Simulated scan of single mutants.
Amino acid sequence: MQTILETNSVHKTKTQLEILEDKRTKCLVYTRVMGYHRPVESFNIGKKGEHKQRQHFEEK
């Protein structure tokens, strides 16, 4: 029974995103490379893969 409810809630979420599609804007992610900032979307396939594997941390 839980699977059906979870599936329905996921379906509702998709529908809400589809409804608001015209209000969404593209988000550019920048990262610092060799002392300057570049958008990740301009990376080649290998560099995009490296970026996804990075581990982020917060300094205390």
Rank of each mutant, 00 (worst) to 15 (best):
38 R>D: 04
29 V>M: 06
37 H>V: 13
48 K>N: 02
13 T>E: 12
3 T>N: 11
25 T>R: 13
36 Y>V: 03
42 S>L: 13
55 Q>M: 12
50 E>Q: 14
25 T>E: 14
17 L>H: 02
52 K>Y: 09
7 T>A: 14
48 K>P: 04
17 L>Y: 00
41 E>M: 14
19 I>E: 10
12 K>F: 02
41 E>V: 15
3 T>I: 08
18 E>H: 00
15 T>D: 02
47 K>G: 01
20 L>Y: 03
27 C>Y: 07
2 Q>Y: 02
9 S>C: 05
54 R>W: 06
48 K>D: 01
9 S>E: 13
6 E>Y: 01
21 E>M: 07
51 H>C: 10
2 Q>V: 06
49 G>T: 04
31 T>M: 12
14 K>G: 02
6 E>P: 00
51 H>R: 06
36 Y>M: 06
47 K>M: 10
21 E>I: 13
44 N>T: 08
23 K>P: 00
6 E>F: 01
54 R>P: 04
31 T>Q: 04
12 K>P: 00
14 K>M: 03
49 G>A: 15
20 L>P: 00
54 R>A: 06
54 R>I: 01
54 R>C: 05
8 N>P: 02
48 K>W: 01
27 C>V: 15
17 L>S: 01
11 H>F: 06
33 V>T: 09
15 T>E: 08
40 V>F: 07
28 L>W: 01
7 T>E: 14
13 T>I: 10
40 V>W: 03
41 E>H: 15
25 T>G: 03
60 K>M: 12
34 M>P: 00
23 K>H: 03
56 H>E: 11
42 S>V: 15
29 V>L: 13
37 H>M: 10
57 F>G: 03
45 I>R: 15
32 R>S: 14
59 E>T: 05
2 Q>I: 09
54 R>F: 04
29 V>C: 05
23 K>S: 07
10 V>S: 10
24 R>C: 12
11 H>D: 11
38 R>Y: 15
58 E>N: 09
23 K>F: 11
58 E>V: 06
19 I>A: 04
56 H>S: 12
41 E>T: 15
4 I>S: 09
40 V>I: 13
57 F>L: 09
31 T>P: 01
14 K>E: 03
39 P>K: 13
27 C>M: 12
23 K>T: 14
6 E>W: 01
46 G>M: 10
55 Q>C: 13
11 H>K: 12
39 P>Q: 08
